[in-house]
Write a protein that binds this DNA or RNA. Structure first.
Lengths: 242, 242
DNA sequence: AAGTGGTCTAGACCACGTC
DNA sequence: ACGTGGTCTAGACCACTTT
């Protein structure tokens, strides 16, 4: 009720944090509804308007999804809308196609200095390294390499990747309870080396997009470092500046 | 007051549109404050809370900027923050540097089929074509080519471009009253041809980012079509996925 | 002290979806 | 008919800036 002056945080932000904690703890799973605003207001001992403002922010961050008349849902990577928020590649011709992920390998390794710094883990920690190809209509368009803290994805393995129908992030979400909430990307143009050219079925030294991504889960915790090489002969990377 | 069921638009959105109209009409200029929420509430005959929600959305879209205790301001491309919203290129090493724009040429021409479609104007309409280089610390990093409807930028010319200290968009904003509000970009990787390689001071066939941008002013009116070629030897394009 | 935006509340009513 | 989120209002008080 009273606003403490130093390090002041409004009530609705504290409520927001409590909701994120509950999400992080798995109290409400992806795809499910969370309690109604009235229920949350009762639970946290604040007015409905204050809950509303907390939920508003989480909805703006695409962590929750409001549906009038139905309730408020936890977003899920099962949903194509969420999927395309993280894959910004569009076909030049033709409508949107759900790409197919083809895993190439899944190795256990140890974090080098770069990976350790990106993932905020100890150098030498156990990590998984996953390489895979993304195909649109059977045509390879992306090859990427992921670095994943082993602690977060306990028993990840090749057959798991091969058997899963759907996106990688939806696998991580359902199998390990890790939801990617946001990511940053650094994009460069590079030339295809021979190995990559073969995989993507392009000529050696073809210009490719190099997309380095750091993906975060709740609480700004980095849980994936990835580098993708995108062929842009039939696709382009879309971005909205606003 | 009463909600008409078909084509229902909430009050705050109507207020938002009225505010945008006033901005578009130049009633409040970039960098200036708009009237207080109370004044706007009186003017539009609604409660302060309704004005607040309208302003909230405009602030979320970076069209307005709220400053507690001071007022609500019209954003301006003079502000570095706004500038970097539209230039997503960061130096690999070293802090942020304000790049310098070096105009190469400014031609009058007529819209081809592509430009006409992008800009939603008649094929054959008068347009300006501007080519320029962006230099960071004296090093060329971007060369781009802009297509601008002549109607919007009446007496644009080379000396105007040369004399202006600041970003192109701040020139457009102060000289022609055209504010870029949002843009979409399509990004590909391409090889530098000889002409571009010379301008950017890289080897021929170096991989470059090709960034095609369509920029909009109020009311989703496209007012600039541009294609940039970015050298990513010392810089990278940053993007936030959220 | 006065003016601005920011927070919080309580209540009324509307729009949408389900039962 | 009921429950959900969505809108709108009115009022009180807080935090920040300027006078």
């Amino acid at each position: 009720m009273a606003h403490e002056s130093p390090t002041f945080s409004p009530l609705y932000r504290q409520i927001k944090n409590l909701i994120v904690q509950a999400l992080d703890a798995g109290e409400w799973l992806p795809g499910q509804t969370i309690p109604s605003e009235q229920e949350l207001a009762l639970r946290f001992g604040v007015s409905q308007g204050t809950v509303r403002k907390a939920v508003d922010e989480l909805a703006a961050e695409n962590i929750l999804l409001r549906k009038q008349g139905k309730g408020t849902f936890v977003t899920t990577h099962q949903d194509p809308h969420t999927f395309f928020r993280f894959l910004r590649l569009k076909a030049v011709n033709g409508g949107p196609v759900l790409p197919k992920s083809m895993p190439l390998e899944c190795l256990r390794g140890r974090a080098g200095i770069e990976a350790a710094r990106a993932l905020s883990i100890e150098q030498g920690s156990q990590i998984f390294i996953v390489r895979r190809v993304l195909k649109f209509n059977g045509k390879p368009a992306v090859v990427d390499e992921m670095y994943l803290p082993a602690e977060v994805y306990p028993d990840l393995n090749m057959s798991m990747l091969r058997d899963w129908q759907g996106s990688l992030y939806s696998l991580f979400e359902t199998r390990f309870g890790v939801r990617m909430v946001r990511a940053t990307e650094k994009i460069r143009a590079v030339a295809a080396d021979r190995r990559v050219a073969e995989v993507l079925n392009v000529q050696e030294s073809t210009p490719l997009l190099s997309v380095e991504r750091l993906a975060y889960t709740y609480g700004d915790k980095p849980v994936e470092w990835r580098r993708g090489l995108y062929s842009t002969e039939d696709h382009y990377y879309v971005n909205e500046l606003s």
